[in-house]
Design a protein around this nucleic acid. Structure first.
Length: 567
RNA sequence: GCGUCUGUAGCUCAGUUGGAUAGAGCAUUAGCUUCCGAAGCUAAAGGUCAGAAGUUCGAAUCUUCUCAGGCGCUCCA
């Protein structure tokens, strides 16, 4: 319908204003009206042309209007000040979408033509403990990103990058070892507290459980040697451990326990399964890290200073150069991340990283480094930065720290409000927005809680339609659906497909949650005001609510939320 | 100081590519059960779209500046 009108206008323009070159290239916008007294569709083309053809926009609108013929579908055209052209569409054609949706068997999603191999990396929290609500938003948005891209038709691999070779693992190992020796309250002489007042070693209750699981391995470490190092700086103990012949085996066992007993369980609680787990240690073992560092050196992008190896970031606009290899020989995250991305570039067309917004500067740094190594960063690497979520409970903001053991595990949130509410609330706003997440509200089972409100609409429709299985309802033209709510519902239905596809292609789940909420709202209003199962126009109303229900089910399915037939 | 995200009703937020009178929910106030689920509905009230200038026929939307808040600017992860 919109295309048809656009063609008619283009035709009129070529007759009227062909002498102006710019007219041929102008974008003819056709939009839906918000006020039905202005018809169904409108265009602002006359106002855009006013400047080019130097005429009063209203006159232009009139000229265009007179060059478009009416037919069965376009029943009226009017030109209105300051220069809108409004189109009135016949009811029969206005609502083709309702039949399209009711008759369709697929998911109403358009596929892209050239599909790509896309690598999506998300969560990737250090394997030092259970996942908590601070990880929740990236977790859910990462999953939705992967899902939406696969709806588009792309081939997706979901990967969790496991930082199993860094300092945090050594600190966790020390913490676990202390527990094993019954010294879990021990604090090292040099153990500083950071700005948040948290310690460097891990103090959560789970550390003790991990120590029990690993007791067989921990027995291999000589107890007396460890005890003798307790009054020295923590790094003495760490270097002692690193020299131990079973060090990598024990570290590996530790990481396995954390991943298998905690992280995978946490992910599964919100329904996430990764296709691949990539370990940082692989970068060392395969020699890729050395290879990449050599490449950086050969391209003259690094230099040595103060015993460390530096990348020449200032050559690319950064305000300082950044360290690749520390004075003590350890790699920085910068170095291993470059190598990891080099690895990912080998087998994929597009890489997507889902990171917290606090990594903004770092993302820029990584991009420039990879660009300097001749990777097509602009086209092939997307780093999606997700703003923080602030969770509230009983009016209090919940703060989080894995090390101190003071955190709210994601599994507790799921147990508290349910998997679907958890997902829904994390998805309710676009990623650039800071998210205020009220746990108490998410637990409520009333209209304060959008997910229940939507579920309730579905439950009500399910109840109405329950006994109608045998009733045949034929395709209708919906001419009798003329009440305010009916017209509004038809209008919302009409926009579903374009809304859905916009959400999928722009990876904006918030558009879907908003849409479903609005649809549910009008439905509830309609339901309270109108009896659906009446004698006279029963069929049309049944089809209307069937369509509403189908959209709710489809929208929830796209978001991977389970519908509730009764509540 | 630099970078970045944000600023819309008392609170939490929508607002299509710049379009016609800026919209919801909560909270407040006043109502609605012979009737498909009241886990609901109806209505009232609530606005300097942070501020200023600019572009435009037309700005919450685009540009610039200012103000306020979050985050980052470690040989941290």
């Amino acid at each position: 319908m919109i295309e048809e009108i656009r063609n008619k206008i283009a035709n009129a323009l070529s007759l009227l204003y062909s002498s102006y070159n710019e007219v041929a290239t102008i974008n003819i916008e056709i939009n839906r009206t918000t006020d039905k007294s202005h018809g169904d569709l409108y265009t602002n083309i006359a106002m855009k042309l006013a400047k080019i053809v130097k005429k009063n926009p209203l006159n232009i609108a009139e000229e265009i209007r007179d060059h478009i013929t009416l037919n069965d579908e376009i029943v009226k055209i009017e030109s209105v000040a300051p220069g809108y052209i409004n189109f009135f569409i016949s009811t029969k054609n206005k609502y083709d979408q309702i039949n399209t949706i009711l008759n369709s068997k697929d998911d109403l999603i358009q596929n892209v033509e050239n599909t790509k191999n896309i690598h999506v990396e998300y969560v990737s929290a250090n394997p030092t403990g259970p996942l908590h609500i601070g990880h929740g938003r990236g977790m859910i948005l990462g999953e939705v990103t992967a899902k939406f891209l696969s709806y588009q038709g792309h081939k997706i691999i979901r990967e969790y990058y496991v930082n199993d070779a860094g300092r945090q693992i050594d600190l966790l190992l020390v913490s676990v070892l202390l527990c094993h020796l019954g010294k879990n309250k021990h604090i090292f002489v040099d153990e500083k507290t950071n700005d948040d007042g948290h310690l460097v070693t891990y103090k959560g209750n789970y550390v003790n459980d991990v120590a029990i699981s690993l007791s067989h391995d921990l027995e291999k470490i000589d107890k007396d040697s460890v005890l003798s190092l307790l009054n020295e700086p923590i790094d003495s103990l760490i270097s002692f451990l690193k020299k131990h012949k079973s060090y990598s085996q024990i570290r590996n066992a530790l990481v396995n326990v954390i991943i298998d007993k905690y992280i995978k369980e946490d992910l599964s609680a919100v329904g996430i399964n990764f296709d691949s787990w990539f370990r940082e240690s692989q970068l060392y073992e395969t020699g890729l890290l050395d290879e990449v560092l050599l490449n950086i050196k050969n391209k003259n992008l690094s230099y040595s200073k103060d015993g460390a190896l530096w990348f020449k970031n200032t050559q690319f606009g950064d305000d300082q150069d950044r360290v690749l290899i520390k004075k003590n020989g350890d790699m920085t995250y910068f170095a291993t991340d470059i190598a990891y991305h080099v690895h990912k570039f080998k087998n994929h067309d597009v890489l997507i990283d889902i990171w917290g917004a606090d990594h903004h500067d770092y993302a820029q740094r990584l991009r420039t480094a990879l660009k300097a190594l001749d990777y097509d960063v602009d086209n092939c690497l997307q780093i999606h930065l997700v703003q923080f979520a602030n969770l509230y409970k009983s009016g209090q903001s919940i703060s989080m720290s894995t090390r101190s053991g003071e955190f709210y595990p994601i599994q507790d949130l799921v147990a508290d409000i349910g998997r679907d509410a958890t997902k829904f609330y994390y998805l309710i706003k676009k990623k650039e927005q800071h998210l205020e997440f009220d746990v108490d509200q998410a637990r409520e089972e009333n209209k304060n809680n959008p997910i229940y409100y939507i579920q309730y609409a579905h439950a009500r429709i399910t109840k109405i339609l329950k006994d109608l299985d045998s009733e045949r309802v034929s395709e209708e033209d919906y001419n009798n659906l003329i009440s305010k709510n009916e017209v509004e519902i038809l209008g919302i239905i009409d926009k579903y497909q374009e809304t859905l596809n916009k959400a999928i292609f722009e990876i904006r789940p918030d558009i879907i949650t908003n849409y479903l909420y609005k649809l549910s709202k009008v439905f509830h209003s309609y339901y309270a005001e109108t009896k659906i199962l009446t004698e006279d126009i029963r069929g049309e109303r049944i089809r209307l609510v069937q369509c509403v229900d189908k959209i709710i089910l489809n929208g929830l399915k796209v978001l991977d939320i389970e519908p509730m037939d009764s509540m």
